[in-house]
């Protein structure tokens, strides 16, 4: 009891200090007094650190927008009251407080989309084909002088029909990949875009200004080459076409990949939640080919390759290492 009492006293003092130091009226002797207080005990340091932690959260925000937002949105109390009246308010809230230009918005506003576990092939006016992998969103912008595919999120495999006067370009926030030939993949997940070339040539460029440079950086990639991440100073790497494009044929190929990474990758391909016991499975590695079109087959293959137990329920799978004591 005494410990928590002195902790709360320290917190009160820390709060007083923060308020004073940020008032614009603190002078040199206030600073000195604060430093003396801080040095007095570990508790004081901890308390002030806690205050600083909260204070720093605001650094990431645009002040004007944040203040208006925080003053405008409902308290959880109010939302709770609304929900108590009727749960269908939840659905209304989802659509009305909707999802503009967040990355979620990007996904919902796209022209072609796939959900988890879905692949879709789109055949375009010129005969080019785009195969969308799981969780992908693209826009098609075919114009007179170019054929532009905006990849908002996810992964696509493109097969380009040759057209002399209309370059075929796949674009993400990070850069572009222009076809000089016929078959390649582009993948944008989170903060980076990667490209792999299966056939012919692709020219990959960064977007001017995106990586804080005034000129673009471009490289040419041949078949069997790719870039791990489109960025300034990127270098071509050799790619394993199986690893990069296997999904198009319904499988993923791994070589000495930690199981945890494999499971995280598999999560993309199913609406199921996959939960794993991180402590026990972190020393297991996967080498082989895993089917992804049917989760039954996926888990069966994993079971075959590794000493694991996979418990399945509707929309949920729990992966753990086989206990030696358990019967096989």
């Amino acid at each position: 009891m005494q410990a928590s009492q002195s902790n709360s006293i320290a917190l009160e003092q820390a709060a007083h200090w923060k308020t004073l130091l940020t008032s614009g009226e603190a002078n040199a002797s206030d600073q000195a007094a604060f430093q003396a207080w801080l040095d007095e005990s570990y508790e004081h340091k901890k308390a002030y650190q806690s205050v600083e932690q909260f204070w720093r959260k605001f650094d990431h925000l645009d002040s004007v927008s944040a203040k208006k937002t925080l003053l405008k949105t409902q308290s959880t109390q109010k939302i709770a009251t609304g929900l108590k009246a009727s749960l269908t308010i939840f659905l209304v809230a989802l659509t009305s407080w909707g999802i503009l230009q967040s990355s979620i918005g990007e996904y919902y506003l796209a022209e072609y989309r796939t959900v988890a576990g879905e692949t879709k092939e789109v055949i375009l006016d010129d005969g080019s084909r785009i195969t969308l992998n799981t969780g992908t969103a693209v826009d098609i912008h075919y114009q007179d002088n170019q054929r532009l595919i905006k990849l908002r999120q996810g992964e696509i495999y493109v097969q380009v029909a040759k057209q002399k006067n209309r370059p075929f370009i796949v674009e993400t926030t990070h850069g572009t990949a222009q076809a000089l030939g016929t078959q390649y993949t582009v993948k944008k997940l989170g903060n980076s875009t990667s490209v792999g070339v299966i056939e012919s040539n692709v020219k990959v460029c960064t977007h001017q200004g995106y990586f804080d440079q005034n000129i673009v950086d471009c490289i040419n990639l041949n078949a069997g080459m790719g870039v791990h991440e489109i960025k300034w100073g990127m270098k071509p790497i050799a790619i394993n076409i199986d690893s990069v494009a296997g999904w198009k044929s319904g499988y993923l190929s791994f070589e000495s990949e930690p199981l945890i990474n494999v499971l995280n990758e598999l999560k993309r391909y199913t609406p199921e939640k996959i939960y794993y016991d991180a402590d026990t499975v972190n020393d297991l590695w996967v080498s082989g080919v895993i089917p992804i079109t049917d989760m039954d087959k996926t888990y069966a293959m994993l079971n075959k390759l590794l000493p694991i137990t996979i418990k399945r329920y509707p929309y949920l799978a729990i992966v753990s290492k086989k206990d030696h004591k358990e019967s096989p």
């Binding site: 208006k68 405008k72 949105t73 407080w97 909707g98 967040s102």
Partner: peptide, 8 residues
């Protein structure tokens, strides 16, 4: 959702 949408 409210926070995200309003802030954006």
């Amino acid at each position: 959702r409210q926070l995200e949408s309003t802030y954006l």
